[in-house]
């Protein structure tokens, strides 16, 4: 069994989780600062990939970044860079699909943040970046971690947009999900079953780790409360 799809899937999922972790948290933070009309408009755009079928996302990526598009042909001509049919094309696709999960959960966490805490910090003369990184983020840690885990799981399982943008190239763009589909198509049930089991194990382990971390986090809080 060639393990390239496993390596590739995890690589793609980790990088896109990192990408949406940063962009999602920043977008969630800054959207509370813009005026209401723009806020409503941006919120729809940021959440749209969650409800769109992945094939629609894949189609749009191909039309915007594909070799025949304006941006794609320009990059290809001047930097001989193609956005499609590479392993990192899948990162673009999975990041877009997973982004709303991170953005939504982070926004929820920020909205439940008690703003008087940051006001108090301001009166104590702390800088805005200090407040953001040392007060707001730690306070909202749990929501952000949950969002990141959801994004990782979503990125690991993405099929539709990935297969349109990156195809199925063995040893280059093959991921677990596209490999399972390919094996099912060519009637290689035995190998397909192995990949399915492996995928279930990975996803279960991810969820177990999350529960474990959450549990530990909560116990720590209880301990802290009992001491005080």
């Amino acid at each position: 069994m060639d393990l390239y799809p496993l390596f590739n899937s995890i690589r793609i999922a980790l990088i896109s989780t990192f990408v949406v972790l940063i962009t999602g948290v920043l977008c969630a933070y800054y959207i509370s600062k813009v005026n209401r009309v723009i806020k409503g408009f941006l919120d729809v755009i940021f959440t749209l990939p969650l409800v769109l079928p992945p094939t629609v996302v894949g189609y749009l990526i191909l039309k915007i970044l594909g070799p025949n598009s304006f941006i794609g042909s320009f990059m290809n001509e001047f930097f001989s860079l193609k956005f499609t049919m590479n392993w990192w094309s899948a990162v673009i696709a999975t990041s877009i699909v997973a982004f709303p999960l991170m953005y939504r959960t982070a926004r929820g966490a920020f909205e439940s943040f008690n703003n008087s805490l940051s006001d108090v910090a301001l009166t104590l003369g702390l800088s805005k970046s200090y407040i953001f990184f040392r007060i707001r983020l730690p306070y909202c840690k749990q929501g952000i971690i949950a969002g990141a885990v959801l994004s990782f799981a979503r990125a690991l399982g993405e099929y539709g947009a990935t297969s349109m943008v990156a195809g199925y190239i063995p040893n280059k763009t093959a991921t677990i999900s596209t490999t399972v589909y390919h094996l099912w198509q060519i009637n290689n049930d035995e190998l397909a079953f192995k990949w399915v089991m492996l995928n279930i194990v990975i996803s279960a382990v991810v969820l177990l780790v999350v529960n474990f971390v959450e549990d530990k986090y909560q116990r720590k809080e209880v301990k802290y409360v009992s001491y005080s």
Partner: peptide, 9 residues
């Protein structure tokens, strides 16, 4: 192995 073939369904 070279990764030069993509398979369509």
């Amino acid at each position: 192995e070279k990764g030069v073939i993509t398979y369509g369904s």
